[in-house]
Design a binder for these strands. Structure first.
Length: 464
RNA sequence: GCCCCUAUCGUCUAGCCCGGUCCAGGACGCGGCCCUCUCAAGGCCGAGACGGGGGUUCAAAUCCCCCUAGGGGUACCA
């Protein structure tokens, strides 16, 4: 058996959203799992809606998520010759015919059909015609489909789907200006590129019977089809722009890890028992098209965050720091600061995204006087606590090496002598050091700030 | 309207193909408790679902039919 060949075929008309990326992922996984070939094909036959910018977004998104194509990207806009050649063949063989009906006439008939509540189908009045109303009258090219019988799709995920041919119409292959249309180009390209498995969103399921006829008309064997369930937003509708973050690049900006995105997206419609987290290697090893569910899934942002947090926590600190680089820069954190490696450790178990890593790190940048959160100040910097902070500062001054364990030991001794509990000085110390009530362990904070800053802050909080 | 797809906790899902082991399992989220210098993390406990109705069968979440609901499509878009 020849190697499986799959493709991801987005159209560059806007953002590359996560639904599309999931389709790409399933194709990619199928290729990797089976030792097949993953092809990227940009479907830009609609010149009016396609933009270079959108193409770049697709390429960038695919690169970020780590699914570089084995072949391509190919652009349909550069394959006009192939489509023209195929359509001529079809015309000659009687698989296609010229249709001189105008858009307007068709539209009228459509509205009329809608009124009677029946399915609109082109009435095929041009099918027998050999010439138009005038020699230079514009025409489109239509597929000559059978009027009786039915098409059977043996879909890997949907099962057997049967469509009656009299529900199909002689759809357009090429526009009046000669440019080919989607349903034609996909088939031509999938044949030309030797695609063995068409794995795509189930919004294409309705196109499939038409395409199957085209395969036959073009003398080719149809591929295996696998129609994936849609990804929905929280409102249960097909995921789109108005669902907040939907574009894959947005998730990069939000500080999600590409690896986590892959694992999460794979679980939308596919699963392996109760396993929640997958490395990419596991995905490749375990993924199987036949395990894909048929029903749509809602994109659960909260679970994605949990997954991302888990991965961040288990990552090597230096690796994390490396990945967080751009986010630190954006947050104005000097990326060469000596305290960074230490601080990342203190912060990594508390962050769900790289953005949060940067946010939590910013408190260590400024070493000058603290700006107090008003509530925190009144609540914890009291007449009771202030003298203790001053005394603690004195106790800490004697610590030999100013590391978290040393500082902690010294603090414990201090507490013991005074018969105090940690809870008596914990929050006051935190407020003194950071100005607020939330931070990593105060011992970590002290080490990161160092002796000088720690004592200064402790004393100045005790002072006023 | 018409055509197609889908239907297990709020969400992602296991189980369904090969009926009994399911008074339906896991995870996110939620509530509580524990741990604790705060916040997280972690641990434990809890609430929470087979859309409805008919069949078939000794037995149905699992098989069949109908209904309902949701989604998708219905372009000289992809």
């Amino acid at each position: 058996m020849s190697v499986p060949r799959v493709r991801f075929a987005p159209s560059p008309t806007g953002d590359l959203h996560v639904g599309g990326v999931r389709s790409a992922l399933f194709n990619w996984l199928h290729a990797r799992h089976t030792g097949g070939v993953f092809v990227l094909r940009v479907e830009d036959t609609d010149r009016a809606r396609s933009t270079d910018e959108a193409t770049n977004i697709i390429l960038e998104g695919m690169a970020w998520i780590g699914m570089e194509p084995d072949e391509g990207p190919f652009f349909q806009s550069r394959r006009g010759d192939l489509y023209r050649a195929r359509v001529q063949e079809l015309l000659a063989a009687g698989g296609a015919y010229r249709c001189w009906c105008t858009k307007e006439t068709i539209a009228e008939k459509r509205t009329a059909a809608e009124k009677t509540g029946t399915l609109f189908r082109y009435d095929r009045i041009c099918r027998g015609r050999t010439e138009g109303p005038s020699p230079d009258a514009p025409f489109v090219l239509r597929a000559a489909l059978p009027e009786e019988g039915e098409v059977v799709i043996e879909d890997v995920v949907k099962g057997r789907v049967v469509i009656r041919n009299d529900h199909l119409d002689d759809f357009i292959l090429a526009r009046a200006d000669g440019s080919p249309v989607y349903n034609f180009t996909v088939v031509v390209d999938d044949i030309d590129m030797g695609i063995t498995h068409v794995i795509r969103g189930d919004d294409h399921l309705n196109n499939t019977p038409k395409q199957m006829h085209l395969y036959r008309l073009l003398g080719a064997e149809p591929p295996v089809f696998a129609h994936l369930p849609m990804v929905h937003g929280p409102d249960g509708k097909k995921l789109g722009k108005r669902h907040g973050a939907a574009s894959i690049l947005q998730f990069r900006e939000l500080g999600f890890l590409p690896d986590v995105m892959r694992g999460f997206l794979a679980r939308l419609g596919w699963s392996h028992g109760d396993q929640e987290e997958f490395t990419t290697d596991e995905l490749i090893q375990l993924f199987d098209l036949t395990g894909v569910r048929g029903s749509a899934a809602v994109f659960d942002h909260t679970k994605l965050e949990w997954l991302n947090g888990r991965r961040i926590r288990e990552m090597a600190p230096m690796e994390l720091l490396d990945l967080a680089q751009p986010f630190l820069e954006r947050a104005g954190i000097p990326t060469d600061a000596a305290w960074l490696p230490r601080a990342v450790v203190a912060v990594q178990e508390r962050a769900k995204t790289l953005v949060e890593i940067a946010e939590k790190l910013t408190m260590f940048v400024d070493r000058g006087p603290v700006t107090f959160d008003e509530k925190a100040q009144t609540k914890f910097l009291t007449d009771d606590s202030k003298p203790r902070l001053a005394a603690l500062a004195d106790a800490l001054a004697a610590v030999e090496t100013f590391t978290a364990p040393e500082v902690e030991a010294a603090t414990s001794r201090f507490l013991e002598e005074r018969e105090l509990k940690m809870k008596h000085i914990g929050q006051p110390t935190r407020v003194a050091l950071t100005g607020g009530t939330v931070s990593p362990s105060i011992y970590d904070v002290m080490e990161i700030f160092g002796r000088e800053v720690t004592l200064d802050r402790l004393r100045s909080a005790a002072g006023d």
